[in-house]
Design a protein around this nucleic acid. Sequence first.
DNA 1: ATCCTGCTGAGGTCAGACCACTAGTATACT
DNA 2: AGTATACTAGTGGTCTGACCTCAGCAGGAT
Lengths: 251, 251
Amino acid sequence: MSRGKQNEPGTHRAMQVVNHIRSLIENGTLQPGDKIPPEREFARTLKISRASLRTGIGYLAAMGIMKVRHGVGTFVADGPAQFGKTSLSLIGALHGFQSWQMFEARIILESNLATLAAERGKEEHHAALAEEVAEMFAALSSPSDYLIHDLAFHRIVSQASGNPILAAVIETITSALYDSRRKTVERSIDIHQSAEMHRKLYHAIRAHKSKEAHDLMEQHLQLAQAAQGLERPADRKPGEAKSESIFTKGV
Amino acid sequence: MSRGKQNEPGTHRAMQVVNHIRSLIENGTLQPGDKIPPEREFARTLKISRASLRTGIGYLAAMGIMKVRHGVGTFVADGPAQFGKTSLSLIGALHGFQSWQMFEARIILESNLATLAAERGKEEHHAALAEEVAEMFAALSSPSDYLIHDLAFHRIVSQASGNPILAAVIETITSALYDSRRKTVERSIDIHQSAEMHRKLYHAIRAHKSKEAHDLMEQHLQLAQAAQGLERPADRKPGEAKSESIFTKGV
DNA sequence: ATCCTGCTGAGGTCAGACCACTAGTATACT
DNA sequence: AGTATACTAGTGGTCTGACCTCAGCAGGAT
């Protein structure tokens, strides 16, 4: 006895919202930074309840596609692509990721990104890299300022690689890595050496020496890794290896 | 005039739920596959409304941490780690990822994963790989069966690499890649050659020949890439290059 | 001119009723 | 007996509509 179903079955409202917004993004109606209509109004437009709409938005927000600002509105994310702010941390908690693994992933990815950047980098990227290198040398005495340009440098390399997907992965890992140890800023002792490596790396990229760029990036990160004591443990050393599940719910 | 605030301020309920579950996972109370209490009951326990609880669960579900099954219950995800099923597709829509970029990312990542697997693989992995290779040869005439073992093989390599983070990334990319072109199963013509390459790759990994494993994996994937016509376009060829934004909202 | 106040609009939460799906169990038919 | 159908309990999904909280702004008091 087919009871009059008031809605199509299986078409989860939340997904309906997700797909709707997805298509708005795909056809260009919605650009990064744009604001979407107020929930009450949007819900009326889509013929669904505000609750369902919110479920869908929550889904998108969880993946970093949208940014919700209480009292202001909901916007399409505009920063660098990323897989959700806390995703790695959460997934890590579930699967027991450790920080040396995150760093290892970073080394592998960025080394290859450097290779690609050396192969494909355009003048604009070279200029931007040069700019950051200069700023780094100018900030040798200010660790916090140095950090900013260090990050910018790496981000530009990601862009220059021409592969936004790998760039997004790196972005996710880097931000998680920072989140887990924001305090441990690099020792100022290493800064000069670090700046020097970035300079060489920049030259390798500009000269399209991909192999060299790869190795330099690898060395650079391995040094940073050592500086933070995040090497891969020799092996399942039974000792009191504090295994650093790093997502040490710092709370 | 402090109006009796019925709850602490700013402690977004959703995040409260997320953190609660996160800690339950971290301290081992919640294991993959476990079921969480029914929404109504859980909400009462946490002293929040069911709506808020659902928002939090939605957040976790979006990132693949939890799996919700209508009419059955909500569970902690148990499959291989992944960054949310549709995350890449959604982020891709926003940032215009293209399929050749996804494949490129896959080649780079899996090649390095093969290197690591060759360096760190244990007997258990070797045995599992051998098993899959055997199954592949046994399924030469059945593309769909072959596919299953092909996937399994690559997944084992990921595990053998000892880096679950990179494995999760690969898992995410692979599933997105499949989602976007489920129909394009490999031509049966290539299957025998493919099986052969997997066999060689297995041998390289078992013999701990990391460089060889890396190169074999790279070759194997480049062939697969070519078979699907997903090479990187020579360059911004102005022609009607159908650029394949691949997340062709296949609807 | 500056600061405080209150309004407005937007997201956040709540409560409770009702719909929809799954799976197991009881019942009826062959 | 055996199998198929119907019922039911349990759980997630959606809706409604009221109220809370926050951010920004306009207008008035100082």
